[in-house]
Amino acid sequence: MNSDVEELMPRLLPVEFGVKSEALDLSGPPRNPQEYLRQVQLEASLCPEVVVAQIDPKKLKQPTVHVSVLGLHAAPTGLCPSLSWQQQQVSNFSDVRQRIAKNRTRWSSQTLDNNMTMPDLTDEEGWKRFCLGERVCVGDSICDTEVEAEPGVDYNKVGFPPFLSIVSRLNQTTVLMLLEILTSWFTDKDFIPQLGCWLFALLACLEKPLIPEAHSCIRQLSRRCAQLRSALESKDDEKLPALNLLICLVARYFEQNDLADQPE
């Protein structure tokens, strides 16, 4: 570093040396702080202003990039929802989210039934049983059980519905954790109405802007719904409206536009 350049740079640690300073041996360790700083200055002055690396292109390895592009399964003919239907669902969903946000405090203050014990945050199996019921989770048996608030229903067996008094108690960490648990379970399982209710409720409580983990989770959910829909053979299949709705909300409301259905 020449003296002209050195004069233009601010001295953050100015060090003054007397005229009788001994010549420094850069090969040895400094004996005091002033000597250390002077060694740094001398080393910097010996460095060239421009350094060019000599690289042999033949020795460079060609980078290998693995790109996994998982597109959305196209809806079978006649099963793709219209654009107006999708827009209406987004509008309705937005209204639901606003009502939940407005009344969260009031609903979360309601007393839960004695038999309703929410699992610990890290109890993944407990949350599966809580949401989907023992009939579905124990032994991985699938049971299309219609869950209705009627006398004598055993929610431990059929799962607790996503009552507003429940979902209003969930903070964002729990909402995302539970959404990931149910989406992971759904990856190799069939769709059941109880699952659809919980997924809708959790999406309604998921705050924007989304963090990366939430982006990944809802995209996985949308792809799984599209995968199941691609195997449907009739527009009268009872699963179709729910699958279309979840795909629509992920793509249109949460702005995952590459996953949106594009009606012909």
Score class of each variant (00 low, 15 high):
Lys157Trp: 07
Pro48Leu: 11
Val50Met: 11
Ala251Met: 07
Leu170Ile: 15
Val96Trp: 04
Gln89Ala: 00
Ser108Thr: 06
Gln194Arg: 11
Leu112Ala: 15
Gln88Cys: 07
Leu259Phe: 08
Arg252Ser: 14
Val136Gly: 03
Pro76Arg: 03
Lys61Leu: 15
Gln54Ala: 13
Leu112Thr: 11
Phe186Trp: 07
Ser222Glu: 10
Cys225Trp: 02
Glu207Asp: 11
Cys80Phe: 02
Ile166Lys: 01
Asp4Met: 08
Gln194Ser: 15
Pro263Arg: 00
Lys61Arg: 13
Pro161Met: 00
Gln87Thr: 09
Ala23Trp: 01
Val136Asn: 13
Asp4Trp: 03
Pro193Cys: 05
Trp107His: 13
Met177Gly: 07
Arg229Glu: 14
Thr117Trp: 01
Gln34Asn: 12
Ala242Asp: 03
Ser84Pro: 04
Gln54Asn: 15
Ile55Gly: 12
Leu112Ser: 14
Thr111Tyr: 08
Asn171Lys: 07
Lys102His: 14
Gln89Asn: 11
Ile192Met: 05
Thr77His: 07
Cys248Tyr: 06
Gly196Gln: 05
Asn114Ala: 14
Ser3Cys: 09
Ser234Met: 02
Pro212Ile: 06
Leu199Asp: 00
Pro14His: 04
Pro30Phe: 02
Val50Trp: 09
Leu70Asp: 14
Glu146His: 09
Leu46Asn: 15
Cys80Ser: 10
Arg97Ser: 01
Phe191Ala: 15
Asp237Gly: 01
Ser94Ile: 01
Ala226Gln: 06
Ala149Ile: 10
Val19Ala: 12
Asp113Lys: 10
Ser82Arg: 05
Leu232Ser: 03
Cys248Ala: 10
Met9Asn: 12
Met116Cys: 15
Glu255Val: 06
Leu8Cys: 10
Arg99Pro: 04
Glu22Trp: 05
